[in-house]
Design a protein around this nucleic acid. Structure first.
Lengths: 235, 235
DNA sequence: ACAAAAGTGTTGGAACTACACCCATGT
DNA sequence: ACATGGGTGTAGTTCCAACACTTTTGT
């Protein structure tokens, strides 16, 4: 038995995170500038190596924290990528994660030391290795997930307006929704608490602010909004 | 840059497959007997080591073929498992796959050399490592997937009856459906071709046989049957 | 005053659920 | 003849999509 282990070739294991953000208008992706580039692509997903003492989830958390200072955000495994040629330097299996953060949270944390930058999903730079493929899978997964679980709120700031959430969902699915139907749908989850204040400054009239009912949200696992995963989109 | 690679600890990469089968009655799982057991659990998922020249998908295909003689079956990555303690012998990351095969196909192929056996999902033996957790994830994924893609047909023999498919879906979701509504739903996909013959021998009346319209099936990517992923079930 | 975004209700159609009886055949 | 499983239709309900006008307020 133990011999079966010894003969086997080992492999580097990397963790890469697709970090989605939302600024109230557009769906964005956080990319980092490679210190030293291996080829002409200078931007890549946030990533690092798996340590021998940590699980995959722990490693992904750690790397996200080291590079952005963010902790406790939505971070879920996407899948593993292991083409033998995907990293030309050495055979590497990468386990990809996707994270949802709101851009405002992130801006208040450190960074810049790591040369991180938000990119519009519609305007991504050339990317390292198979990172583009990872992003493609991640957006598919996000659409799939968001159709049944209210993960969209992970991307919103503490308080937000209905038109903002609608912008987010439109950005995720790359299509427009009727605002009457949308607000009915989103309110019917019972997960939103309407606040007294209005958001001012953006529109003339101002929109009512809402916050997430965290207790309900935490225990909420049911099927949800019926957005149809959209085959086309960015990418 | 290259130094960054050298310092990193490498890791064994395993591939394990959750192989679902259907015998017309019940959802089953194909397990193998470990030649030498590392602990009291003698049964495990089919698995093997990733080779340095193959991709993850290729490796999973290869291992499935080596152990069962099956090729060209539905085989899709589930996710990676990498708890540092999951394999007590040595740190191993396992990329799990799930496969859908029909039991009849499998029976006609070789095997037995590898001591493989079908188990009812309701009556699984003690399993190696975290294989039980993998199975749990796999059934969740299968439910999720089957709710929107007609993957159920992968588990059916060449020709089959509506009551058989219904049995399958009931086995997947662990609940019963109204047969009138079910047959309407399944026929409304337009993926089934009714044959002249009836299945004899099982019921007195006999049920009409159908076969899959392969051309339509191959190009079919749309949303599909609206089964709600069921939180409880076996496991 | 007007431009720009927020907010709000109704209606028709589609899809789903629930439900019960007859049919064909082997024993 | 009867027991077993196969096959079929309808009515009520719910859910969704489509649709337009009024409100607020900053300029």
């Amino acid at each position: 038995m133990l011999d079966l282990y010894k003969q086997q070739t080992k492999c580097l294991v990397a963790l890469d995170s697709i970090i989605f953000g939302f600024d109230g208008e557009e769906l964005k992706l956080l990319l980092v500038k490679r210190g030293v580039q291996t080829d002409r692509a200078t931007w890549s997903l946030m990533g690092g190596w798996l340590k021998s003492t940590e699980s995959l989830d722990e490693g992904a958390d750690r790397i996200l924290f080291e590079l952005t200072g963010l902790a406790g955000v939505f971070l879920e495994q996407l899948c593993a990528f292991g083409d033998p040629q995907r990293d030309p330097v050495e055979r590497t299996v990468s386990v990809a994660y996707y994270a949802l953060v709101n851009v405002k949270d992130y801006e208040t944390k450190i960074s810049d030391t790591h040369q991180a930058q938000w990119f519009s999903m519609h305007d991504l730079p050339e990317l390292l290795f198979d990172h583009r493929e990872m992003i493609k899978k991640a957006i598919e997964r996000l659409r799939y997930k968001a159709a049944f679980h209210p993960v969209g709120f992970e991307l919103m700031p503490e308080t937000f307006t209905i038109p903002q959430i609608q912008n987010l969902y439109e950005a995720i699915y790359g299509s427009n929704f009727d605002k009457r139907n949308f607000s009915r749908k989103i309110l019917s989850t019972g997960l939103l608490i309407k606040l007294k204040e209005k958001q001012k400054g953006f529109s003339k009239k101002g929109a009512f602010l809402y916050k997430l009912d965290n207790d309900k949200y935490k225990t909420h696992t049911d099927a949800f909004l019926n957005f149809v995963p959209n085959p086309d989109g960015f990418i």
